[in-house]
Every structure is written in C-alpha cells, then in structure tokens.
C-alpha cells in the first residue's frame, strides 16, 4: 500500500499520477466499495470515508479490508484536522474518522508521502 496525504489543493493527485503513470484510479467522491477494492489507486479517499460514515457504515474496518482485498492500493487522501474543533458534531466525527483511519493506513503502508505545494516528501519508507 502507498499512502499520499496533504492538505486540500496541494497537488497530491498530480504527484500520484506522475509517480504511478499506469494506475487506474477510482474517485472517492462517488466510487463504490467494490470499485475501490479493484482499482490501482483511489483519490479523494477522505470523501469515500465521509460517504461511508454518512451511510452508517463502519469505516474503521477499511484498512483491514484493503489489506486483505487490495493490498497494493495507492491511496490519495486529504489531511484534515488542522483547524479549531468544528462546531458541527458531524464535522468533528468526520475529522476524527479520517485521522484514525489514516493512522491505521500509515502504519500498514509501505510508503507514506506528504505533499505540500505540489512537492512530495516520503515520510515513511519501510
């Protein structure tokens, strides 16, 4: 597994496409779980997490599921949680979910990249 994180609009997906030019991508905003588990990569993974949460699914199991069904997946996801605690409970739950799932993914990923201003840094290389 490869995990690519960073803030919004930092060029994460461009970075990912350059690094993995052959990959077929699923879009977290509207892909199904099946599509995600068959794709080479997924971008906007945080959106997928939000959709799972809103649908009442247990998204915390996704890291295990991905490791089992699609362990080579390239995951591009926004870093959230760098602001003041949101007033809306749904937003608090969302950033908590993205944080915990991302920690799990980072622990399992072979490499973790962090992209800022379009510049990627490998912050974990197991």
């Amino acid at each position: 597994m490869e995990l690519i994180v960073g803030g919004a609009y930092q060029g994460k997906w461009e970075y990912a496409k350059k690094m993995f030019p052959q990959a077929a991508w699923a879009r977290g905003e509207d892909c199904t779980l099946e599509e995600l588990l068959q794709a080479d990569g997924v971008y906007g993974f945080h959106d997928f997490l939000g959709r799972q949460m809103d649908a009442g699914e247990d998204a915390r199991r996704l890291p295990d599921l991905i490791m089992e069904k699609n362990p080579e997946l390239i995951i591009v996801s926004n870093e959230v949680g760098y602001g003041v605690v949101p007033i809306e409970p749904r937003e608090r739950a969302f950033r908590e979910l993205v944080g915990r799932v991302s920690c799990d993914l980072a622990a399992r990923a072979r490499r973790v990249h962090r992209v800022i201003c379009g510049v990627g840094t490998v912050i974990k290389d197991a």
Binding site: E79, V80, G81, Y82, R95, E96, G99, S102
Partner: peptide
C-alpha cells in the same frame, strides 16, 4: 500535530 494524528500514542 493535527486532530487524530496519533500525537497521544507517540
């Protein structure tokens, strides 16, 4: 670190 980033465990 951000919220939910694993600061506490670290």
């Amino acid at each position: 670190g951000g919220s939910g980033s694993g600061k506490s465990a670290y």
